[in-house]
Design a protein around this nucleic acid. Structure first.
Lengths: 163, 163
DNA sequence: TGTCGACCTTTCCACCGTTGTAAGGTCAAG
DNA sequence: CTTGACCTTACAACGGTGGAAAGGTCGACA
């Protein structure tokens, strides 16, 4: 019933490191401690951790998860709110997707044009070196890649390890 | 012909901030300075900066750009090498894409299932709270979203501003 | 000459989420 | 009593970029 942080990590899929981190940023209430200062977790907390992990796996940010946790714990919440949150996140994902797809398309085009042999001439390098002064009003220029930087949605995580 | 960092930034589309940064991490040779310490740039350096920016816009990492710059400046390079680099990057983009698409698909499914009204019951929340203990050998489970964390390719940038 | 504003300089901090490392305390088994 | 697995905290690092502070420089204008 009561376990140390390592066990909670294993059970929830959230690393001990991150459990402490989530606690420190207030995503998580401070855990009960033993006399010697060890954090103690119950199944209930492990469930919450699992909730957090599932949310992270869907790409929600810490702040969004904070909201999701609030909605989860509010048994009276209108499902509308949850849906709106998810919908908004989908749109963020979509922006990212479009950007990556655009990059990929441009690269694929270039790779396609490059014979890729021992000769030095290379359309890929040439294209990168080109002036291609865009940044005019219409972003959908030549390659379809507006040079605009993106929105900054956190997306990547590292390789897995549970504890 | 010779310009301050602000002008070089405007001309290349790389912010003054980042020009200094690139120099500090050795992506860029140290610029010539005036007596009073101002960096001076020529059109040649601006071209290089533009090359860097184009590469960033295609999602190449600093390290990859370091290689690209090397290949660019080596007039003898086999185009094969450039192509391989681009190809590898396409594969990274692809991994990211797959992950985001998977997230999006899962979310869309959930959003679709949620009526999104004033009632509190919500399949989205329920799904997040579910145990769904996967992490077995085969990742392609229920939702199609293996919970594995990803590879960590740098993808997002901030909103644009040129100088 | 003084001074103003636009520019430049460096250094440090913040973001985001996660990992690593260091230097220590605790616990249970041998 | 020692060993090793665990726990604790505090700090730095990774991507790449922006921001702010605190100062020096430059050109123009009175």
């Amino acid at each position: 019933m009561s376990m140390n942080i390592g066990e909670a990590a294993k059970a929830s899929g959230v690393s001990a490191k991150m459990i402490r981190h989530y606690e420190s940023v207030g995503l998580f209430p401070e855990a009960v401690r033993t006399e010697s200062g060890y954090r103690q977790y119950t199944d209930k907390e492990v469930s919450t951790l699992r909730f957090v992990r599932q949310s992270r796996d869907l790409g929600f940010s810490i702040e969004q998860i904070r909201e999701l946790l609030g909605l989860w714990q509010d048994r009276m919440r209108p499902s509308r709110q949850v849906r709106a949150l998810a919908q908004a996140h989908i749109e963020e994902l979509d922006e990212k997707l479009k950007e990556l797809q655009s990059m990929k398309a441009t690269l694929e085009h270039l790779v396609h044009c490059c014979h890729g042999d021992d000769r030095p001439d290379c359309p890929i390098i040439d294209s990168l070196a080109q002036e291609r002064r865009g940044q005019e009003k219409s972003p959908t220029a030549a390659t379809g890649l507006g040079h605009r930087r993106t929105t900054g949605l956190q997306v990547g995580r590292r390789a897995r390890q549970s504890a």
